[in-house]
Structure formats: C-alpha cells, structure tokens
Design a protein around this nucleic acid. Structure first.
Lengths: 189, 189
DNA sequence: GTCCATATGTTAGTGACTAACATTCAGGCG
DNA sequence: CGCCTGAATGTTAGTCACTAACATATGGAC
C-alpha cells in the first residue's frame, strides 16, 4: 500500500469529520489539511477543489450497461430511467453507509446541493452517449439524461434526510415518480 | 427613473458584453465594475455573487398557477410537466433575445452549467409547494420538480446552442421527452 | 548507501467575496 | 440658494479557494 493511498484516505476521513462537525462552509481547506498532517498545497494535489473531496463522480459502466440492455423500442427517457433503476438495485450494502454520509452533507449544504448536479457531469455524458448509440437524437438524449439524474439525485437527498428508509427503496420511489411504468395513472384526455 | 436602476442596467449590460467577448471565467468582477464606471464594491451591492448577474431566479407565479390548474387526477410529475409546458407557451416574444443571450453564456461555461441547476432553487421550492398543496407527498413533489426543471434547463441549453429553433418549440420538445402525453410509446411488458 | 522518482513544503499571487468606516451626491425644506 | 439627511459610492483591509514556480525531503530499487 503506497503512502499516497494512506494520505488520501486520511484527507477524506478528516474532511468528512470536519464537515459533519462544523459544517462544510465553515470548514477551511487548511483545517482539513492540518488535521490530516499535511499542507493546504498537498490537499490540492489530491483534489482539484474542496467540493471534490465530497463529490467525485466516478464514471459508472454498470449504469451504462444497464441502460444499453433496455429494449430499443422504449423512448430514451424510459430507457434511461429503467437502466438507472436496475443498476442501483445492485449497489453493495457495505458501500451504503459511506454514500449516506456524503449525501447527507451535500443535502444539508445549499451550495453543495447545486454543485451535486454539476458533479454528475461524467455520468450524464456517458448516459447521453449510450442513448444516442441506441438511436436517440442528441437533444432528446441530453434531456432524458438530465431529468433522470435530477430525479436520482433528489431521491438520494430524500434518502439521506429520512432516517430509516433503505437506499434501494428510495431510488425505486424516485424513479416511480417519473416512470410509473405499467401502473399508468394518466387519465388526461 | 432612480439612479440605482440606471447603474444596475449598466452593470448588466457591461457584464453580458464582457462575458460574450472574453468568456465568463476570464472576466473579473473588477473589469465589469470599471466598464460600468463603478467600483468592485459597488458591484457586490447590486449582486450577491458574480453568477447572479447572469442567473437570477425570479419566483414565477405564472408557472405556479399553470401547475395549479392541472387536473388533480394526474400524478405530480405530469402536473408539473404540463404546467411548465403551458406557462412557457406564453413567454412574450420581446423577452426572448435577452433570455437567449443569458442562456447561451451559461450553456457555454461549464462552471455555469452546474450553477444553473442551483439557480432554480426558488422555482423548485414554489413548484414543490404547489404540488404538495394539491395533495402530493413531499418526497414525490421534490423529485417531480427536480426532474421537470432539469428537463426544462436542458431544453433551454439545447435551444441556446441550436441556431434557429424557436424557444417554444424547444421547450415543447424537452417536455415531450419526459412526458409523451397521449402519444404513449411504452410497449414495455 | 547511493540515486531517482514521488510526495511534500514554501512563497507569492489572483480573484471572489465580506466588513467597517469614510465620503459624496441627490433632492426636500427653510 | 444653501443646508441636511439618507442613499449611493468609495477605501482599506482581510479571508478563503485555488494556481504557479521553485525548493526540499523521503522512500524504495539497486
């Protein structure tokens, strides 16, 4: 195990601790660095921004696969929604406490709530790519990806706020809102 | 006409000009202020942040009304989507060039693309309020509002990028993606 | 133990933003 | 006209996120 990995882990740990303790905005990068036993400069060698300690957006191939497996007969919006649904069913349990910790901080900090949308950039791009590969128009793909990710993020925030609910259930509910599926409640003329 | 109004207009004009000319990130608040004949300090007396010169989020009662007029039998997501659709049909023509100018800058600046999501905070809150007033669960309302606004913003970005399309048509298309309406393309089992 | 890459520190600077205090300016009223 | 009050603006000084250029230390391969 390299030293780099250890320093990085220390920065993340100290960062999350401080964010929870005194809030994101009132925590300075210098404080995090000092708590981790390094310099402010070193912090920025590991993370490009303060945000990125909390919000890294790993490109997620599972998600893309799941979207690719949806029937091409579905409109892009539903392919995206159902792909996301399937992919999040499989999130391993041990990851959940960490996810919750991060999402909770983001959900409570106004400036981070907005930044979270932006942090989905990679994932959004990947979804758009998959949808267009499967024949969707670029514009439609962008809109579908944005809407589905917005619902997903909103669902994550709700989950982090609520005390007890399970991650899977929250995501399912979020996706039910935008894709009722066979339930079809539309009585509109 | 008060002096305040004139200074504010000058700041906005000079700001947009500079953003278009050399890009948002390369434009400093000091430059905007100097171009408008005031000090950096004065800029911050008119706008809380550099972003807010570009992204102000006026609470929009027309939108809320339109959502309120949707049939309560519809699920919240569709009430929101169709309310937004109706409201944007009525945007007066003269406003469109200004909107386009702003959206175009936001769409081209990565840091602003994310900030734009955050700037919809007021509107999102208002939509959530209307939806819950009409009987939706709080969680569902938040998710519906987030998804619809994401589609709307993505539609605006697409419109600003595309050269010729009309605003109304772009918004309609964006909302068609997430709410195909009676068209109902879902052949899913 | 030497050597080289990798990790870290130092210094100095920019730009967004804040706070406390001083100044000018526009217009009502004597 | 000239004072006088409050709004608009300027000044100074500081914090914090982030960047760049250069110097140092440190840990493992040989």
């Amino acid at each position: 195990m390299g030293k780099r990995a250890r320093t990085l882990a220390r920065l993340v740990d100290c960062g999350l601790d401080l964010f929870e303790e005194r809030g994101y905005d009132k925590t300075t990068v210098g404080q995090i660095a000092r708590a981790a036993g390094v310099t402010e400069m070193t912090f920025f060698r590991y993370f490009p921004t303060k945000e990125s300690l909390l919000l890294d957006d790993p490109y997620d191939p599972l998600l893309i696969d799941a979207i690719g497996r949806q029937p091409p007969s579905l409109p892009p919006f539903l392919r995206a929604a159902r792909g996301v649904r399937e992919a999040w069913r499989e999130v391993p349990e041990p990851d959940q406490p960490t996810i919750r910790r991060r999402v909770r901080i983001a959900a409570r900090t106004p400036s981070l709530r907005s930044a979270t949308w932006g942090s989905t950039g990679n994932t959004e791009q990947a979804i758009v790519g998959q949808l267009t590969d499967d024949g969707a128009a670029a514009i439609d793909a962008r809109i579908a990806a944005a809407a589905v990710l917005a619902a997903l993020v909103a669902g994550l925030f709700a989950w982090a706020d609520a005390g007890s609910t399970s991650l899977a259930a929250s995501i399912e509910r979020a996706l039910d809102v935008i894709d009722p599926g066979e339930r079809e409640g539309t009585g509109h003329a």
